[in-house]
């Protein structure tokens, strides 16, 4: 899944690279940057943040389903990664390590929210069923209205289903289907066996599937 990736990155110190890179090459570059960070090169960490911030933010956003909180949690992930960088020995990819920190923070946050109870409803905030946080989707008038409705219903079901799923299942389905990690990478990130990753993925998908209405499936 994490195969060849097109990347545009600024390596800092005047080195600009736009090329097709394999996952291994990307990991090697990360390791070099981590090494530089450990030798107190502050610019290297900035490059690492640049390389991973959007993917990591997308993961956190899908995990906690709130744009502002997602940014705070992503910041916390990078802060933790920075302070614990000396402990990273390169046993897994740097990105996998970041996902591990992010998952732990998201699970902790879910537990805290569960203990506190549901947040009060605000009239100013967009509704859950309005899609991507602040972005309101405008239907395409040219397509079939029923099909368009079914498509929106599918997206709404997926987002609501993800939001209500247990964080353990959610982490696996987001890492696999949205972030594109392999079973092995997920196993490393979550510190669980590959077999558990597969069973959680099936359970997560089946849970989402149960919530789909028949007309949504029929319309696709």
């Amino acid at each position: 899944m994490a195969g060849a990736t097109v990347s545009t990155m600024d390596m800092g110190a005047g080195v600009g690279v736009t090329t097709l890179r394999s996952a291994t090459e990307m990991e090697d570059i990360d390791l070099i940057l981590v090494g530089r960070c450990k030798r107190n090169d502050s610019g290297a960490f900035e490059i690492l943040v640049h390389r991973h911030k959007n993917r990591l933010y997308n993961f956190v956003y899908r995990m906690i389903n709130n744009a502002e909180d997602a940014e705070d949690v992503t910041q916390e992930v990078f802060l933790r990664a920075f302070t614990r960088l000396q402990l990273f020995r390169g046993e897994c990819a740097f990105q996998t390590w970041l996902y591990r920190i992010a998952t732990n923070l998201c699970v902790d946050r879910s537990r805290k929210i569960k203990r506190q109870g549901p947040p009060p409803l605000s009239l100013d905030e967009p509704r859950d069923d309005e899609g991507e946080g602040n972005v309101r989707e405008i239907p395409d008038e040219r397509s079939d209205p029923f099909q368009e409705f079914a498509r929106q219903e599918l997206r709404r079901s997926v987002q609501q289903g993800l939001a209500r799923m247990s964080p353990k299942l959610r982490a696996v389905v987001v890492l696999y289907d949205i972030q594109g990690l392999s079973y092995e990478e997920i196993a490393q990130a979550l510190r669980i066996p590959v077999g558990t990753v597969k069973s959680r993925l099936f359970n997560a998908r089946a849970e989402l599937a149960r919530k789909l209405k028949p007309y949504v499936v029929a319309a696709q």
Binding site: N54, Y57, N58, R62, L154, R155, D177, L208, L212
Partner: peptide
């Protein structure tokens, strides 16, 4: 059929940025 539909939908979700 539902799982395939879901997988396609999850993969087509727009990526959020910071």
């Amino acid at each position: 059929a539902k799982m395939r539909l879901l997988r396609n939908e999850l993969q087509s979700l727009p990526h959020a940025s910071t």
